[in-house]
């Protein structure tokens, strides 16, 4: 589904990603871990098409299409969803109105009819249960005055509504208490299917107790330096990142 080959990206001339290789197949959950500043969020942003990052080398194919050639909105319409680390506030625009615009533009791109108000609300009601989100929250201005937990829950709710094939969760666990973490993870797990894939970007192992990955990759200095199963995450939790850093850094000096 997603094939990343030798991806290099920089911001304002500073290289952040230095040759990422990653294959993600339908039905899989991949966790990207790594110390602060290793390039985890950059990878998420580059895949979603954030323009301040410049891709300097490499290629990304998504369902056979050159992802890097697509505008951010077209990537979304193709089925790439990014759950933001810091969801943005849009005053005066209700979540409902925002989502209806989004859902219908995505549907239009996919050659489907726009949903009328009734169908849309029915769909909303159904998906709301997934993340135990309150309808009152959805009639308020998007993310404005939402608590950290509400914002993240709203992200997963949007994910449920847009039915992406590839979901990238960027530090979705940050700022969540244990209950919110459980609710959010629960939502993500319910949305999992054999046809879609999830990339979980996280600093801590904690989230992976709830969203169990098939593969864990450690990102350091812009490269995937170690890959493994969920046991790798547990090892990291126990030993920290230093042993990996040391191994890589000593290699580099040789």
């Amino acid at each position: 589904m997603l094939s990343i080959k030798n991806l290099h990206a920089s911001i304002e001339g500073t290289p952040i990603l230095r040759g990422i290789n990653l294959e993600v197949k339908a039905g899989e959950v991949h966790a990207i871990m790594g110390p602060n500043g290793s390039g985890k969020s950059t990878l998420a942003s580059v895949l979603a098409g954030r323009e301040e990052y410049e891709v300097t080398e490499g290629e990304v194919f998504f369902k056979g299409k050159d992802l890097l050639e697509l505008a951010p909105e077209d990537r979304a319409r193709e089925g790439v969803f990014l759950a933001f680390q810091y969801p943005v506030e849009i005053p005066g625009v209700s979540s409902t109105n925002f989502l209806r615009t989004a859902v219908n533009q995505v549907r239009e791109y996919r050659g489907l009819e726009a949903l009328d108000a009734v169908k849309f609300l029915t769909m909303m009601k159904e998906k709301m249960k997934l993340v135990e989100i309150d309808q009152k929250l959805l009639s308020r201005s998007l993310n404005e005055g939402f608590s950290g937990g509400e914002k993240k829950r709203n992200e997963i709710f949007q994910m449920a509504m847009l039915e992406p094939t590839l979901s990238i969760l960027d530090e979705t666990d940050s700022g969540l208490d244990i209950d919110a973490l459980r609710i959010v993870s629960n939502g993500v797990n319910q949305l999992k299917s054999k046809d879609n894939a999830t990339i979980v970007v996280t600093h801590y192992q904690r989230l992976l107790d709830y969203i169990v990955p098939d593969f864990v990759h450690v990102l350091y200095k812009g490269r995937i330096v170690k890959s493994g199963t969920k046991d790798l995450a547990l090892e990291l939790e126990e030993k920290g990142y230093d042993w990996i850093k040391e191994a890589i850094d000593s290699e580099a000096t040789v």
Partner: peptide
């Protein structure tokens, strides 16, 4: 840019 990108990322 953040607001625009957020909307774009949702397909808008």
């Amino acid at each position: 840019e953040d607001q625009l990108f957020y909307c774009n990322q949702r397909g808008i």
